[in-house]
Design a protein around this nucleic acid. Structure first.
Lengths: 226, 226
DNA sequence: TTGTCGGCCGATCGCCGACAA
DNA sequence: TTGTCGGCGATCGGCCGACAA
C-alpha cells in the first residue's frame, strides 16, 4: 500500500517510529493484542520485560478483507544499556517532506449515507478540494469519478450537484461500495488525491465496543449534563 | 451425519469397507488426493508401497460449507502377510439391513430449476413416494414441506400442484435454498424420507472439470458421430 | 410427464426535491 | 451547508399458465 494513502487512512493519531530509530519492545503488551508472537530462543528462564530494538524496516499493509490498514515493523534487537531514568528521546513521526498537492478528507458516515437510498452527501470542502471540478454550466452538473481502494481496485461513482439548495452527492455506484465494504453509520470514508491527481478511497471502521474492554466499566456511568 | 442420509447423498457408486474388515492402504494414492497425510514414525528409510490394515471405525461427515459428504476411516495397521497372488476377498459394502420405509430420490437440476423464476419441477415419482400427500380436493392442492439439510438446518418449501397440464412444483423457499447452497444446473438434489417420515435434502455437486486432470487429455479428441 | 418461455404483479432499489436543523 | 424524509419510477424476483418436447 502506498505510504501516503496508508497514513491518510490510519489518521493523524497513528504515529510510527522512523526507520532506524530506537524503540522499546514490550513482549507482554504485544501478547495482549496479537494472536501470534515471534519465537524466542528457548533456554534461559527469566527474560527482561522489555528490549531495546531498532526499527529496521516498516511495511504498510491493508487487510484484504476489511481494508483496515496496519503496519508491520521489523525489529532488530540491540544490547540493553544500563537503565537510567532520563526521559526517552521523543519518537519522530514519519511525514512525507513534500505533499506535492496531495489532499485527504475523511467523513464519518451518517445513517443516510450508510442506509438510505444509496446516496452519499459529499461535504463541499471535499468536493472542491479533492474531486475533479464539475462543469457548472450543465444542468445539473454531473460526472463519473474513478476512485481506487487501498488494493488498487477501481470503483466508479456518479458525482452530481443538484437539489434545492444545491449540494454534492455520490449516487450510482455508492451503494455497491457500501455493501462490498460492509460499511455502517459511524464508519469513516477517506478520500485521497495524491500528487498525480489520482483518487483513492480508504475506510476507517468505527471502534466497535469490545465485550470485556475497559469501556464496559463506564457504559452505565452517569454522564455530565450538556 | 446420519449414515442413511450420508449414503443417499453419496450415491450408489460410493462403497465403503465394513468396519473391522481388512483393507489395503496405499499412502501414494492418499497423497495424490489429500492435502494432509498422517505422520509416519521417522527412521527406517524404505517403506512398502502399501499396508494391510483393518478399518477400525468409520465416521460420516459433511463439509459445513459445501454440504459435500465424505467419510473418515480410522485404519489399524496389521502385520503384512507373505505376498500371495490369490485374489483379495471382495469388500462387502455397508448397507442398512432394513430400510424401514426410507426412500431417496435424486434429480439433476435443469437450467430452469437452477436459474429461472425461482421454481423447482418435482418429478412425479419423487412427489408421490417422498413428499407428504397433498389434499387433492383443494384447488390448487398446496402445502408447505419442512426439509432438513445434512447439518439439520430446517428449510421450508411451498409445494404446489398446478399448471396445465398439472405438475408438482416447489416455489417459495426454493430460490433461497439454491442461493445458499450455490447450486447450478447440473448439480443434483437428493430428497430423502427416513424411516420416521422425516425429510432431508442433500446435494451432489456436478463434477467440475479440474485443470490438469486426466480429462484434459481427451477434451479436444474427436468424438464418435451420434 | 416436464423443460422452457413470456406475461405479469408486487417488492425493493435507488434517484429526486422539499424542508429543516 | 447538509441530514433526513416521502414520493415515485425503474428494475428485479418470483409465481403463473401456455406450449412443446
Amino acid at each position: 500500500v502506498d505510504p501516503q494513502v496508508w497514513h491518510a487512512c490510519a489518521g493523524p493519531a497513528a504515529k510510527l517510529p522512523a526507520v532506524r530509530s530506537a524503540v522499546w519492545y514490550f513482549p507482554q503488551g504485544h501478547a495482549e493484542q496479537a494472536s501470534s508472537l515471534p519465537d524466542f530462543p528457548a533456554g534461559s528462564g527469566w527474560r527482561p520485560p522489555f528490549f531495546l530494538c531498532r526499527a529496521a524496516a516498516i511495511g504498510f499493509h491493508a487487510d484484504p478483507e476489511t481494508d483496515e490498514v496496519f503496519a508491520r515493523i521489523l525489529l532488530d534487537p540491540r544490547p540493553t544499556p544500563p537503565l537510567s531514568l532520563s526521559p526517552e528521546p521523543p519518537l519522530s513521526s514519519v511525514e512525507g517532506p513534500d505533499d506535492g498537492g496531495a489532499m485527504a478528507f475523511a467523513k464519518v458516515l451518517t445513517p443516510s449515507d450508510a442506509n438510505n437510498g444509496g446516496g452519499f452527501s459529499v461535504p463541499r470542502f471535499c468536493a472542491d478540494s479533492i474531486f475533479p471540478p464539475l462543469d457548472m454550466t450543465a444542468d445539473p452538473p454531473v460526472q463519473n469519478v474513478t476512485i481506487r481502494d487501498v488494493h488498487g481496485k477501481v470503483w466508479t461513482f456518479r458525482h452530481i450537484y443538484r437539489g434545492t439548495p444545491r449540494r454534492h452527492l455520490l449516487t450510482t455506484g455508492w451503494s455497491k461500495f457500501v455493501n462490498a465494504k460492509k460499511l455502517i453509520a459511524g464508519d469513516s470514508v477517506v478520500f485521497i488525491k495524491n500528487r498525480h491527481g489520482l483518487l483513492y478511497a480508504g475506510i476507517r471502521r468505527a471502534s466497535r465496543p469490545c465485550a470485556g474492554g475497559p469501556q464496559d466499566y463506564f457504559r452505565h456511568a452517569p454522564q455530565a449534563a450538556p
